[in-house]
């Protein structure tokens, strides 16, 4: 197996000198292609910050993040955006759908950025909506969807671009148990069939049960790293 994600001595602090909070303290991890990894730990342990740094949404104070052999610190703003567009799918705890676009348009947007043809986009949007069991609701805007439905759209959006890695920040936190399990099954299925790599930040035992690897964070440090 090859290392898809590699972090080295990753440090990230927030605030000024007096109010300084260390979110990550020399975190070094390797994640291989096809892993279904859960980063777990109490609130404030640095899970979300680690996901943001892996995805290039934030910059570390020190240390490095290497994705598919490329150090993201060496990438320009445009290169990093292109890399995120083509290789990373994000699922956020707060869904982060674009409110002025319909569910279909939210899913289609990233494919538009990738330059995929209209026919192909339409086909994939249909596939994704079926996959997350939202067929028939594609024309609704996020404000007209329930929390669970919005998270399904977010999952569909993350998968539509066929990324190598999906970074999911507490994806089931706002979902009821049944919906959460249903979505997790979809993601586990994709992981197994398409060898898509998933990295979750979570407290959810359902994810922990399904994960093939658990990385425990506490106070910004890796406390334990277990493979099942």
């Amino acid at each position: 197996m090859t290392n898809l994600i590699e972090t080295r001595d990753l440090c990230r602090t927030f605030g000024s000198e007096e109010t300084k909070v260390t979110a990550l303290d020399h975190v070094s991890i390797n994640i291989e292609q096809g892993e279904f990894t859960a980063i777990i730990g109490p609130s404030g342990s640095g899970k979300t910050t680690l996901l943001h740094l892996i995805g290039g949404l934030d910059e570390p104070n020190s240390g490095s993040v290497t994705l598919s052999g490329s150090n993201i610190a060496d990438m320009s703003g445009n290169q990093l955006s292109d890399f995120r567009r083509d290789h990373i799918g994000f699922i956020f705890q707060a869904y982060n759908l674009i409110p002025v676009l319909s569910a279909e348009e939210n899913i289609e947007y990233i494919m538009l950025l990738q330059g995929i043809s209209a026919a192909e986009r339409k086909k994939r949007v249909k596939e994704m909506l079926e996959l997350v069991e939202l067929d028939g609701l594609g024309d609704r805007r996020p404000s007209h969807l329930s929390g669970g439905q919005q998270q399904r759209v977010a999952v569909a959006r993350a998968m539509a671009s066929k990324p190598d890695i999906i970074l999911a920040d507490e994806p089931t936190a706002n979902l009821d148990s049944k919906t959460g399990i249903s979505l997790l099954d979809v993601m586990r299925d994709l992981n197994q069939k398409r060898k898509m790599t998933f990295v979750f930040s979570t407290h959810d035992e359902k994810i922990m049960d399904r994960a093939t690897r658990l990385i425990y964070l506490r106070d910004g440090k890796v406390e334990r790293d277990e493979r099942k």
């Binding site: 995805g55 703003g77 292109d82 567009r85």
Partner: peptide, 16 residues
């Protein structure tokens, strides 16, 4: 700003 943040997070380049 939120929409732009989402758009950038999922791969919209600064130039776009």
């Amino acid at each position: 700003i939120y929409e732009f943040g989402v758009a950038k997070a999922i791969g919209t380049t600064p130039w776009q």
